[in-house]
């Protein structure tokens, strides 16, 4: 099942601790390493590190939101090239998300199966 020699680490970026805690529970039980960030700026720092992340990115956040993070990544192609971005967005935010350069999207609220389906191509 795991094709890559090195498994991508999951990074959940959300200002809502409920979501962050839930994602931790989900990925721990599914057996994936996971880290969290509370906003775009915290996430951007981590993305500058060695690790290649699979990022679950919330759209609305304080300090730096999902959209601003995407724009920051576009300014640094070497960063956007090695990370996978999955935008967590609602149906009504699709238009906003469509203009952003992301790998995939997942709509809130979602099931664990939805999460597994969306990460499959990148793991």
């Amino acid at each position: 099942m795991r094709q890559n020699t090195k498994l991508r680490e999951v990074l959940v970026v959300d200002d809502d601790p409920v979501i962050r805690n839930m994602m931790i529970d989900i990925f721990n039980l599914e057996g994936y390493p996971i880290r969290v960030a509370r906003n775009g700026r915290e996430a951007l720092e981590m993305l500058h590190g060695e690790e290649n992340y699979l990022v679950f990115l919330d759209l609305l956040m304080p300090v730096m939101d999902g959209k601003e993070l995407c724009q920051a990544l576009e300014a640094e192609p070497q960063l956007s090239g090695r990370h996978v971005i999955i935008m967590m967005s609602a149906m009504d935010q699709r238009a906003e998300v469509a203009s952003l350069n992301v790998n995939s999207t997942i709509s809130k609220p979602f099931s664990v199966d939805d999460v597994m389906d969306v990460i499959r191509p990148y793991m």
């Binding site: 409920v18 839930m22 529970d25 989900i26 039980l29 009504d92 809130k108 609220p109 664990v112 199966d113």
Partner: peptide
């Protein structure tokens, strides 16, 4: 409406996430 839907989404996501997690991991947890 935007705010409200955003607000509704968090608890809904929690309910959806945890309930599907319970179902999916029922044997292991």
């Amino acid at each position: 409406l935007v705010t409200a839907s955003h607000e509704l989404r968090t608890p809904l996501s929690a309910i959806s996430g945890y309930s599907t997690l319970l179902k999916r991991q029922s044997g292991r947890i």
